[in-house]
């Protein structure tokens, strides 16, 4: 998907989100991330939002859904580069304390 790039290194899957995440793009992002996740079964999933240009609560759903997948698979999860607005949305759902927020 345009705006999403996925890299693998030493069992870690990193998803670089370089686009806007709304309900429209979240469904395609979900399919692609889950496809790669289940094909490769990484021991750590990192979602990097550094270059994400927009996020609404659909992005929150995307993140929470991927976090749930990690919990179910015993995979570590980390979220990088969330800006103040993304952190605010995560905080509203109480997810800032649960997720491993970095940078």
């Amino acid at each position: 998907m345009d705006g999403l790039s996925i890299e693998f290194e030493n069992g870690q899957m990193t998803v670089f989100v370089n686009c806007e995440i709304d309900h429209h793009t979240a469904s395609r992002a979900r399919e692609e991330i889950d496809g790669e996740f289940f094909a490769n079964m990484p021991h750590r999933l990192v979602i990097d939002l550094t270059n994400m240009r927009f996020m609404d609560s659909s992005g929150l759903g995307l993140i929470m859904g991927r976090y749930s997948r990690c919990l179910a698979s015993g995979c570590e999860f980390a979220l990088y580069g969330a800006d103040e607005r993304a952190k605010c949305i995560l905080r509203m759902a109480g997810m800032d304390k649960i997720l491993n927020l970095k940078g």
């Binding site: 469904s27 979900r30 609404d56 609560s57 659909s58 929150l60 759903g61 949305i89 509203m92 759902a93």
Partner: peptide
């Protein structure tokens, strides 16, 4: 109400109105 949704709960987190108000 926050977290209330009639959508598929796996991916709809019910925060739309909370975000609007915030």
């Amino acid at each position: 109400q926050p977290l209330f949704t009639t959508g598929s709960t796996e991916e709809r987190c019910g925060m739309g109105f909370s975000v609007m108000e915030s």
